[in-house]
Amino acid sequence: MLIDNHGRQLSYLRFAVTDRCNLRCFYCMPEEGLNWLSRAELMTYEEMMRACSVLVNMGIDKIRITGGEPFVRKDIMHLLSGLAALDGLKDLSMTTNGVLTAPYVAEMKMLGIRNVNLSLDTLDPNRFFSITLRDEFKNVMNTLEELLRNDMNVKINAVVMEGKNTQDIIPMVELTKHLPVSVRFIEEMPFNGDGHVYTGLNWNHVRILDEIKQAYPDVRKEIDAVGSTSYNYTIPGHKGSIGIIAAYSRTFCGSCNRIRITPQGTLRNCLYDDGVMNIRDLMRSGVGDDELKNSLLKAFSQRAKDGWEAERLRSENKSAHESMATIGG
């Protein structure tokens, strides 16, 4: 069991396998994209497997593969197959934008992957294009259908953005009436990748819930699982559920059980810190597993109390405006 310096158990790793993405969502990166990492800068699949094996041995029992978009990395199924075989790993999950995912769903199921988060900010094709700058709505919806056909546990992640998709909140909620999905509304965060300073939030978790209550006054609060990032709700008669993630307000930090590794191997104890060590560089320097474990334990013993402290402790002149694609969604 891994315990940090605030008494929180660490059991969940979010591993970004690439910074590249085939969408250009404005809240994540500039229209022209980013300065993508070179192949040499990325962790190899062998390095990823070793890092995950060490962490699972230390007590991590859930790994979520993220990006960028995981399926733009060549041979991603090879990595997933290796991870699925790790002894002690209880949950291997995916986060994807759905553009390339549908052909792989059956194989994912065979590997034991059951939990998939699908990024989808609107149900309107025109608004989808205005947000993502790509005409891929049909492919994403095909992926949703394929996931449900294969009995996957699907969470739809929708970032709520003023002036962009707030009119989609209720239609997204209505998806849960007939589909066994969890629609999760996420507060917009400052990780836009273009350097402009994020000054605040108008659509926070309180306002999102108020919007839902106006249409569904009988919405019911459920008990949130330990370590949950979302406030969870159900509506009587609906097959699915609703979650609201206070990603900017950072109200869930007290029970945070997750760590992150970026595509270039940077360990982040918090979404809002700027990295505490580089696992790739340690491995390439020739350290053994015991030394790697000791370095990880030291890093876990110095975690910030919450996201606000983590942001304050970032390197001087390094504000939190990098892209989510470089951090890991």
Rank of each mutant, 00 (worst) to 15 (best):
Gly82Phe: 05
Glu174Arg: 12
Leu111Val: 14
His178Gly: 10
Arg250Leu: 01
Leu92Ser: 06
Leu292Arg: 06
Met94Tyr: 01
Tyr216Leu: 04
Leu2Ala: 07
Gly33Tyr: 06
Thr176Val: 05
Leu86Val: 13
Glu46Asn: 13
Glu222Val: 15
Ser130Gly: 13
Tyr198Pro: 01
Cys25His: 03
Arg220Val: 15
Met161Ala: 11
Glu145His: 10
Asp121Phe: 00
Cys28Asn: 05
His238Glu: 03
Asp151Leu: 14
Lys90Val: 14
Asp19Ile: 05
Phe137Ser: 03
Met152Lys: 07
Asn257Glu: 09
Arg73Tyr: 02
Asn232Leu: 09
Val159Leu: 05
Gln302Cys: 05
Ala310Tyr: 07
Asp87Glu: 14
Lys298Arg: 14
Glu46Lys: 13
Ser301Gly: 09
Glu107Phe: 04
Phe129Cys: 07
Gln264Gly: 12
His78Pro: 15
Phe129Gly: 04
Val183Arg: 01
Gly59Ile: 03
Ile327Arg: 01
Leu175Met: 11
Ser241Lys: 11
Ser315Glu: 15
Gly112Asp: 10
Leu147Gly: 11
Thr199Leu: 12
Pro171Gly: 07
Asp273Ile: 01
Met283Val: 03
Ser182Gln: 15
Ala246Ile: 11
Thr44Glu: 14
Trp308Met: 09
Asp194Asn: 15
Ile261Val: 07
Val159Ile: 10
Thr176Asp: 02
Tyr216Met: 04
Leu23Val: 09
Asn117Phe: 00
Ser38Arg: 08
Val116Ser: 04
Asp168Trp: 00
Gly243Asp: 07
Ser230Arg: 08
Gly265Glu: 13
Met189Phe: 02
Val99Gln: 08
